[in-house]
Amino acid sequence: MSDTRIKLKGKSPFKEMVMKLLPDGGNLNDCLTCGLCASGCPATGMDDMDPRKFLRMAALGMDEEIRKSRWPWFCTMCTRCVHACPMKINIPQLVFNARRLRPRDEMPKGILGSCDMALSKETNSAMGCTKEDFSFVVEDLLEEIKEEYPIWEERNLQAPIDKEGAEFFINQNSREPMIEPEEMGPLWKILNLVGVDWTYGSAGWAAENYCMFMADDNGWKTLTERSAQKCDELGCTTFLNTE
């Protein structure tokens, strides 16, 4: 292993920074180099990298190499390595924070674009679905269902937006209203059959959060707060993710 020949100066600013953020420092100093993490990680081998090696690089202070690496974008932060690790070392958090090392304009374009789009819309939609688009699609679909199956008129199928005092505030991935609205119907019907009192919010209904994926803490917070605020404003008691 070539790692071991590198002269240690005992300085690894990136790793130290991440350890300060994590409970118990994410156990980042406790690695036994057993390799269990790497053997069960689907991203092992890509760009000649794996989780064990990534952690070693951080420990050795190879911060510049880490900053340049594409590998943090190949790790999905799925935490399978932590599950397998005897020392419960938080490699996904190390990866998450490594994503932060790039300037904003060097982030993968798709993720940056989705984050910026969501921030620019009060709906939080990464696909740019506006308040008006959303309510149009929802109302249109509701009508179509009732036309095709009149029983839903009788059963009073609803898809309310901004219903005050509803128990559940439900979010929805933008893919549905934008690409396949038909996929919303089954959920509405299930909720109707159970007799659930629920609502969408005109603001903050979109479930996706791409700002989180690029470790943009402020953007992440803004999006989450918008949803939570709308939920509070309507007096809903439970925030329910459709996933």
Partner: peptide, 8 residues
């Protein structure tokens, strides 16, 4: 983890 939108 954003893999779908990362372009890779």
């Amino acid at each position: 983890g954003g893999f779908l939108q990362s372009g890779y």
